[in-house]
Amino acid sequence: MAKVRGAVEIDIEKCKGCEICINVCPTKTLKMSEAVNSKGYSFAEMINDNCTGCTNCALVCPETIITVYRKKF
């Protein structure tokens, strides 16, 4: 079976740091950043490369700023 690896792209300027995406991520790929965006919110970022591309984070994001890419190996 082909392995699928995902990658998450987050528009950090629009992120308000609600943490809902982190809560629904099954692989603990996302975490809140220590840096802040220009509005002063800390934002979600990828910390591991074990993303499966399940799109859970993109579905629940209230700002719809998460884009998930999938790549087959």
Partner: peptide
């Protein structure tokens, strides 16, 4: 809409 399954 609070979980991914419910969103779908």
């Amino acid at each position: 809409v609070h979980t991914p399954a419910l969103v779908r």
